[in-house]
Write a protein that binds this DNA or RNA. Structure first.
Lengths: 376, 376
DNA sequence: ATGAAAGCGCTAACAA
DNA sequence: TTGTTAGCGCTTTCAT
């Protein structure tokens, strides 16, 4: 419920679970297990076979569209199935077949648009091949990531895993039990586990090159969450890109990953000795843009700002944001391709690193006159 | 791959699947079925029992933490399990237990932030109770919705279904096979299927009341996709809200659901005889805001604009958007509560309609002077 | 073309 | 406390 209570609802309390035991006294003629809907016993292949006067094997054949069944019999079976409202048990089927036609996706954070898109792409691609998708969120917790991965894998035929937190040694130890496995945004050097990732370094490098071409030499990095690997990647890439240029310096400002984080940093940004700010992501950049605007700092006239991710809104900020776009949908689709190949005994293939694409819009411009030299 | 080819990658073609048959000639000693990883036979409860010199029942007891096992035996079993890298088969377990510890969610569109939040809430709540989540997307296709629902339900113990397209009669016919079932954003009058929904009408009514209190009498509705039920709901609510007031008129302009749709409508909005525009959703409102700005029309001085949904960005448009917020996370959590109650034989409870909350920000204001009367 | 029967890997009632 | 045994509902070999 909304804490303010302004979203009213007539919901009952979640409780009221009966656990165990027969609700009513009657032992019933059900063999051993209590069924979920005790009233109607749920049709089984056996009952259908009985009703149609054929063997279970024949029912199975009909249900699976085997062509070797006499039309007359097939019709009888279908009628019986229809009458009994028969639905083959997919669980039993999975057990007999040794496969579930399900794959799993583990992500650290379902709120992250990147993973939402991976989810979409994967779900869609898997669906195309008659497979379903199981999803689980690890909430950025390393222990949880490993446990979830193992469990999810046991329920399915393959796993797409985005697990930035699991230590490499542990992941390596697990990788055999998790196969067929596709890794997202990290790899396992020397193993045969395929990995799909976004080359954040290349994206940062492109941004820095762009900024340098505009004359910027003093950069400010608005850092993401300290625990985030992508923040570490981006920072390292920024450091490397700067280091390769003699007169290029960069300072870092702890910030965060949200609009509000960026907004709150605006004052510090203005007071810093930098001509361009490289934000951890678009949200932060957007927040900074907004805060800077309120302080009367003009972008890009007074200072340039870049984002990262190319979220849909990046086109619509004022000014529109220069950023690096990453192929989010593609990741999910390709993850499926890899997994499916693996599931069919195919090779792992080469790992791929998707290169972000620099999108120059209006939040970056030349260094303001008189600021090309150190200020203090 | 990106059509432009600018996101390069070294991906192999998705093909190369071997199908059926033993890859190599050897029939092997594996009983009947080809295992997915022919190399290591995958430990079963039987093998562990054998290795530990106990019965399968004992292994089962140990794996499930039954306290009635001698510590010495338990240790031996655990050691054997460890040594064999044993993982109990969840499929077999599900079959024996008659439950999967999995629930399913079917949504029309995974790109819709509303459903993304439902997904998150549901996944999290289910996880708390040791359940996993299966998701499927119907792509707004009625036939698909029904089929997916049945199939997903068969793989799991319960279903949360957002199926705006399935005809009521069909849904009613299906509802028994789908139980335990929780419906999102629609209900099944007279049935015992719980339903959780957002009261769009109330949201629209609140928006209209707000606009009227500012003196607006001539409203323009920027309509969503014609096929969308929520568009129909909102339009109907708008009509009703207007009809209840003598001097209130509203006209409708076909638009869409995206920023670009709203942006493209700006000229028509300016030329229409209306003092306030009620947009289908925030994205459209945002697009309109942007387009109006480019045309030199001031919001809210010249015209007021409202959105719907309170997407995160609504706070950050210029001007910040007056809109109606809906409790998206809450929906997923409550859906779980309902489903869990049902799964435990509990009652369906009362349906709930979440009331949107009006958020008055800066995109609405009083009717411009001299425009309170009909223009032409 | 059809059926009988032996699994798939696990759980649980019952006996010891 | 532990083992025996009979399922859970389906598929598939093998014989007919």
């Amino acid at each position: 419920m909304s804490p303010t209570g302004e979203h009213r609802s007539a919901a009952p309390s979640p409780a009221d679970h009966r656990t165990g035991a027969e609700p009513d006294g009657q032992p019933g003629r059900r063999t051993r297990r209590a069924r979920s809907r005790p009233d109607r016993p749920a049709a089984t292949i056996g009952r259908v076979a009985e009703a149609a006067g054929v063997s279970r094997a024949t029912v199975s054949r009909v249900m699976n569209g085997s062509p070797t069944v006499a039309p007359e019999l097939a019709a009888r079976v279908r009628a019986a199935a229809e009458a009994l409202n028969y639905e083959p048990s997919l669980v039993a089927r999975s057990l007999a077949l040794g496969r579930t036609s399900t794959v799993s996706l583990i992500v650290p954070d379902l709120a992250n648009p990147m993973f939402q898109d991976v989810l979409r792409g994967l779900s869609h691609a898997a669906g195309t091949h008659g497979h379903r998708l199981l999803v689980a969120e690890s909430n950025e917790n390393a222990a949880e990531e490993a446990i979830l991965a193992v469990e999810a894998r046991r329920r399915s035929d393959g796993l797409v895993l985005a697990a930035p937190r699991v230590p490499e040694a542990e992941l390596r130890a697990l990788s055999e039990r998790l196969a067929p496995l596709v890794l997202l945004n990290r790899d396992l050097p020397g193993s045969s586990v395929p990995s799909l990732s976004v080359d954040y370094s290349a994206g940062i490098a492109a941004i820095v090159a762009h900024l340098r071409s505009l004359g910027h030499r003093r950069l400010l990095y608005l850092a993401g969450p300290a625990a985030s690997t992508s923040n570490r990647d981006r920072r390292a890439a920024l450091r490397a890109a700067c280091a390769s240029e003699p007169a290029c310096t960069f300072v870092e400002l702890a910030c965060g990953a949200t609009f509000d984080d960026g907004h709150a940093a605006a004052r510090a940004v203005r007071d810093a000795d930098a001509t361009a700010v490289v934000a951890f992501n678009d949200m932060v950049a957007f927040g900074a843009l907004s805060g800077l605007h309120e302080l009367g700092v003009a972008v890009p006239q007074d200072i340039s700002v870049t984002g990262f991710d190319d979220i849909p809104f990046a086109r619509y900020t004022t000014p529109p944001l220069t950023t690096a776009s990453i192929p989010r949908n593609e990741l999910g689709r390709q993850a499926w391709d890899r997994l499916w190949t693996l599931m069919n005994g195919g090779p792992a293939g080469h790992n791929v690193a998707f290169q972000p694409r620099l999108l120059v819009r209006e939040s970056t411009g030349p260094v303001p006159a008189g600021r090309s030299a150190q200020r203090s």
